[in-house]
Amino acid sequence: MITLISSDKRKFHVLEEVANQSLTIRDVIEDRRGRRRADRIILVTNINSKIPEKVIVYWLRHFLMPEEIAHASMSHKKAEKLKKWEAKFFDTDIDTLNDLILAADSLDIPSLFDGACEKVSDILKNRSAEEVGEISKIENEFTHEEEEEEIPSENAWVWRNEFA
């Protein structure tokens, strides 16, 4: 059993085998093996406080069938189920996804990272620039001329086919 401590000092007790899905944590445990019990506490303070819960939920769901996923020998039904579950899991606002991506990146959990990135790209798809700017709070600092003239002409080959 290891203990994760989040930025707001909440403690999460997780089985080592479960937490091993994070390559970062696995390395830390490996480094500290054979030392005192206090060393089984890992600070994850760089992560937003509500995220550890989500990450652990994700771990637990995946812990049940990690090898099967790797070998792609999972039965059709199980794969469907997992897919449905993941779709529900990632169905949150962009802020949470953002935090999940950062957490997955720093904890090194490839499947979570890919899943969250894919969801974000799904959200951005088929929207106008203004909508994307609003959803993702990207500030548009282009000047009027740049937005109207320069950029469209720079990549004219992208826009042209729209009117074909």
């Binding site: 894919e118 798809k125 993702s136 709070k137 990207i138 500030e139």
Partner: peptide, 30 residues
């Protein structure tokens, strides 16, 4: 500005899931 806090490499990874045409069109965002 939320998405902008993500590192560049992550943003590129997000773009990789998109259709190339849409990925190029993100050049007008900022």
């Amino acid at each position: 500005p939320e998405l902008s806090t993500l590192p560049e490499l992550v943003l590129v990874h997000i773009l990789s899931f998109m259709d190339p045409k849409e990925a190029v069109q993100t050049c007008i965002l900022s």
